[in-house]
Design a protein around this nucleic acid. Structure first.
Lengths: 222, 222
DNA sequence: TATACCATGTCAGGAAGATGTCAGCTTTAT
DNA sequence: ATAAAGCTGACATCTTCCTGACATGGTATA
């Protein structure tokens, strides 16, 4: 288990490092969002422990941009305040768990283990559709072994269809899943995304059929 | 199916209300545990949808006290995220199911139906007519497992007949259901749609009989 | 900071499909 | 046999959907 701690309080960070080291799980440590960005892009970690109250760019921003780029690495957020706002924001921005300071190191370690296990548990979770393979863990799709270069929206849409094979999805179903309540969009946004997804699926055995006036239906073509 | 939603996020609650209304299952909505208590004691619901993270008395308390008083009403709990603690607690406190936010409305509806069915001892949400199966959730019909390619109008008409098996429907009944008041049409439009629907039902056991001068009657042929 | 780039939404025009109308034919009741 | 009611093929019209082009806003790069 490879972990990165993003924390600007040096003494706290060092204490955590020592504790985890003694537990047999050494972790890397950076003290700013900028350094975190480059570490994450250069190396591959299994888990991030992210202090939300950082100087400069906030931890939220890091979290948000990671998720926006499709990075699904488990993130445990540390927050000084026990404010519900912070907690909700953290989870909404894509954190997997959070812990309010002050906390017990044992609890931190336990939660890290839980997150790691959770991620591991669904490691080999592939959806197979003829020549199309979708890996739910990495959220990547291959057709005949060739990796598709899906954008965020296309991936969300594909995943939605794969989880609902042979079932009709209305545009409402789709927009409820792809957009949150007060996000503005026209029905055309979905059509456009679908066009783009269909192009990517050109040589795959996954067919997304249009059911006029009702919605769409994905099925495997043999 | 009479449902009560206990949710303090107004926009979410309203969206859910609209969605369920469109699904043909209007639900009542209160935004606090206190109001929920009085609603539940005054009226009889088939199902509660309970957000666990409420201001004031927690949803857990409501759930716990309901069960303590012997109330067995099915309860579906909404949690902010897949907090394992929340989930375990919810089920321990007597919830019948739980759903983590953000969720797909379709999934919420499906789980509600499932809970309701479980309570009723019913098997499914399908209408069965010999070799014809109509799925009310997806509004799709299959004959011998083969999906029918119904158009909007044909689907409306079929659904109407299925809900009125062995009952005579006059053209007026039908037009009142298929068209709104100021829509222009001739009686022939219905005949035309019926012709098209009958073609689709060619190999099914659903027969739509003409009662000359009166209307139509759908029944299962064995 | 300025620039280029990329993802994604909007717009508009066109294609494909659904549905109503008409007209002529078939069926049914008397 | 006749008239009324219903059925259905052909067509016109109107919707819905698709898709190329463009706009926008956010992100990375220099």
């Amino acid at each position: 288990m490879r972990m990165l701690l993003i924390e600007d309080n040096d003494s706290l960070a060092q204490s955590i490092q020592v504790y985890f080291h003694n537990e047999g799980h050494p972790l890397d440590w950076v003290n700013s969002v900028e350094k975190a960005r480059s570490s994450v892009s250069l190396e591959s970690f299994d888990l991030l422990i992210l202090d939300i109250n950082l100087p400069g760019a906030s931890g939220f921003q890091l979290l948000q941009s990671l998720r926006a780029n499709g990075n699904r690495i488990p993130v445990l957020v540390l927050t000084a305040r026990t404010e519900i706002d912070d907690r909700v924001s953290a989870l909404d921005f894509g954190a997997d768990d959070y812990l309010a300071k002050p906390f017990d190191f044992r609890e931190l370690a336990a939660r890290c283990r839980a997150l790691y296990r959770r991620e591991r548990g669904k490691a080999s979770n592939d959806i197979l559709c003829g020549n199309l393979v979708y890996d739910l863990a990495t959220h990547s799709a291959t057709v005949n072994g060739r990796l598709l270069e899906l954008r965020q929206r296309e991936r969300q849409l594909l995943e939605l269809f794969l989880k609902n094979l042979d079932r009709v999805l209305t545009k409402d179903d789709i927009s409820n899943r792809l957009y949150d309540f007060n996000e503005a969009y026209t029905p055309n946004a979905i059509e456009q995304t679908l066009t783009r997804l269909r192009k990517q699926l050109a040589n795959s055995s996954l067919i997304i059929k249009t059911i006029r006036g009702l919605g769409y239906l994905a099925h495997v073509d043999d």
